[in-house]
Amino acid sequence: MRSHIKVFNVDSGSSYQRNITSWVTGNNTQGGKAAADALATAMNYTKDCTAAKKCDVAIGVSSLTTSTDAARVAAFKAEVTAKYPNITMLNDVVSQSQPSVAQSAFAQDISAHNLAGIFAVDGTDAEGATAAVKAAGSAGASIKIVGYDGYANNIASMVAGGLGSLSAIISQQPTLEGMLIIKYAVAALQGKKVPHLQTLPNITLLPSTPASVLAKYQYVAS
């Protein structure tokens, strides 16, 4: 049954997406691929990962059923399979949105494998990954982490550098997403036609990214 209430959606989607008037979200497929490229670069793939000595990579997600997580991971895995055959991907770590759960699981992966990289699919997993690598000490010295979402802690960790810091953060454009959806909502209520789905590309933030740009993408707690 369709009601007359118009629903506007930002970020993660749901299975009732077709009933939504307009949905603005980050392009998770592009973001997942960008993460794979950023991680391969950080790991120095061309030189350090070979068919004889493959590189192990762990992937941390909050939930296996969240649409954003699933899309990002699928794209990441597809990109790695296609472009980086010398990377072995371990089974997903599921953090249940809890940094400490992610941290414990990554600690297992670090001690069980010769881990070269971690893809943390959201802020929570990035938090857990950085803490796990820091706590691992010398065992984590060569592990590169690519995170997602510009939480203040993630950006601080990337800028600080050193053990367990993020090598890159794939960021959505939360400010732009929010502004767009409000624009579309107003337009739709005035009877104008609005795009049903608009995806915005994700940005790759690096330690070398200027502070002013970083500030623009940092998520602000409301």
Binding site: Q96, Q98, P99, S100, E127
Partner: peptide, 17 residues
């Protein structure tokens, strides 16, 4: 304990798991 371990506090700690 979890704050010390992760270097921050989270609202999900001990709840979502």
């Amino acid at each position: 304990f979890f704050y010390i371990r992760s270097g921050s506090g989270a609202a999900t700690t001990g709840v979502t798991n």
